[in-house]
């Protein structure tokens, strides 16, 4: 069983060993609206928390997706480049963005669990 955590930047992080699968939350996908373009990072890229790792564009605007954790990009969901709408259809499933090989497992402690994330979203209104 993997463990799903959430960031304040509205990403979900599913951790299995030292590999984290990352995507944007259902709430984020709803806020962005229909996505029409997703730009994913190069495999092998090293990122730290807060680094811009992907770009999503809705009909209206472009937004950055920031790395929630430190690590190396080991896989990207390249299906999204041709079918960005997958993110809206299944943001927390087939619409995943990338997998990171984590270099600082202690950073996971700074993330929220599902209940804390729900409270965070409700508070943001």
């Amino acid at each position: 069983m993997s463990d799903v955590k959430y960031s304040k930047e509205h990403e979900w992080i599913s951790v299995d060993g030292d590999i984290a699968t990352i995507g944007i939350t259902k709430h984020a996908a709803e806020q962005l609206g229909d996505l029409v373009f997703v730009e994913l990072p190069a495999i092998g890229k090293t990122v730290a928390p807060g680094d811009e790792t992907a770009v999503v564009e809705s009909v209206k605007a472009a937004s950055e997706v920031y790395a929630p954790l430190s690590g190396e990009v080991v896989e990207v969901n390249s299906v999204l480049e041709g079918e960005p709408g997958k993110v809206n259809e299944a943001p927390e499933g087939d619409g995943w963005f990338l997998k990171l090989k984590l270099s600082e497992l202690s950073e996971l402690d700074g993330l929220m669990d599902a209940a804390a994330y729900k409270a965070f979203v409700d508070e943001e209104g």
Binding site: G33, D34, V36, S58, V59, K60, G85, N88
Partner: peptide, 12 residues
């Protein structure tokens, strides 16, 4: 209103 629940692509 910038969009309704059907979304911009459907509206367009």
């Amino acid at each position: 209103p910038v969009q309704y629940p059907s979304g911009i692509l459907t509206e367009h």
